[in-house]
Design a protein around this nucleic acid. Structure first.
Length: 316
DNA sequence: TTGTGTTTTATTGCCTCC
DNA sequence: GGAGGCAATAAAACACAA
């Protein structure tokens, strides 16, 4: 049997009187404290109805649901409620309905409202507070679920868009392959001069070249269509002879430019693509500056940006 | 009927605000 | 320091399948 006025708590439990939390460090102290508050004259916490505040002690039953249309069903419900044991009891449907309505109006509970609701529903103010607290927790959980659902939908949309862009990019890449091949074949001819020039320049440090901002800028400004006849021939020569996989000049750089692309293209495709593009770029670069061979790094400035542009190779 | 999962009511401890 | 809010949790009540 629990002490009257004590909402069943264990040892060292927090106790409540009329909705006020009474913290205690020792159970005995708490019991004494609470016990002293419940004299036979106390108007609340009457025996088995310890969780329910009745209107008065004189047997008069004030209207339990002042705001409800009380019918036989509700009377039965109440009777059921009052006759439940002292264990944890559920609120009646009408009580819950009333609290829900109140929660819908305002989910925070001011002290006056709490007391008012407690009076109207015949519950302890503390019970009203607990109900609101639990209801807020449920509301928050629901809200989180909704937010999660929204975010998931957004993610799905973004993912779908990304996949579409990926496909588009693959198509464009394939188109570039085709066009480049066509271009190279078209430029077929004598390339010996280009090969000699390239070998002469092969002593130049790649770092120097790559770090030279001026050459980068110049490269980026080379219009693709400006080619002299002799330069075209140089390119054709270089295409077949210069870009072998052993060349220290190109293999490393190739990886630099296309390193984010490995998941998309096979290694062979990757290599071929790099070589072809280097070939083209060298040809174009030669039109501007014979001192520097074009490395794959420079390709970045030839309309094949690593990221952030329409033809970019980025990863998520 | 019983085992099990879910919901509801209530407690506890910590934190913030006044 | 007290009051109230919140997160985590306990435990009773309830729902339901086997």
């Amino acid at each position: 049997m629990m002490a009257p006025g004590m909402i069943y708590g264990g040892a060292g439990a927090t106790n409540y009187f009329d909705g006020v939390r009474v913290m205690s460090s020792s159970t005995a102290t708490a019991k004494e404290h609470i016990g002293s508050l419940f004299t036979p004259a106390s108007s609340s916490f009457l025996g088995s109805s310890s969780m329910i505040s009745f209107g008065g002690v004189n047997g008069e039953k004030r209207s339990f649901f002042g705001s409800f249309n009380q019918d036989d069903n509700e009377a039965d419900e109440l009777g059921e409620y009052f006759h439940q044991s002292e264990k944890k009891r559920r609120l009646t449907d009408n009580q819950v309905q009333f609290l829900e309505k109140s929660f819908g109006e305002e989910n925070k509970l001011e002290p006056e409202r709490k007391v008012q609701l407690a009076k109207e529903l015949g519950l302890q103010p503390r019970q009203i507070a607990i109900w609101f607290q639990n209801r807020r927790a449920r509301w928050k959980t629901k809200q989180l679920e909704k937010d999660y659902e929204k975010m998931r939908n957004r993610y799905d949309t973004l993912k779908s868009n990304y996949n579409n862009l990926l496909k588009e990019k693959e198509n464009l890449t394939a188109e570039v392959f085709q066009l480049t091949d066509k271009l190279v074949i078209k430029e077929k001819g004598n390339g010996q001069l280009a090969l000699r020039d390239f070998q002469k320049r092969s002593d130049a440090s790649p770092k120097e070249i790559n770090d030279d901002p001026i050459s980068r800028v110049e490269m980026s400004n080379v219009p693709a269509g400006v080619l002299k006849k002799q330069q075209q021939e140089d390119l054709n020569s270089a295409k077949s002879d210069v870009f072998d996989s052993e060349s220290p000049h190109y293999t490393g750089d190739s990886a630099l430019v296309f390193e984010t692309e490995h998941s998309e293209l096979s290694q062979d495709d990757d290599e071929n693509f790099s070589k072809t593009m280097l070939s083209t770029a060298n040809l174009l670069g030669k039109a501007e500056d014979d001192d520097y061979p074009v490395t794959s790094l420079h390709l970045t400035y030839f309309g094949f940006p690593v990221e952030d542009q329409g033809f970019g190779f980025w990863t998520y």
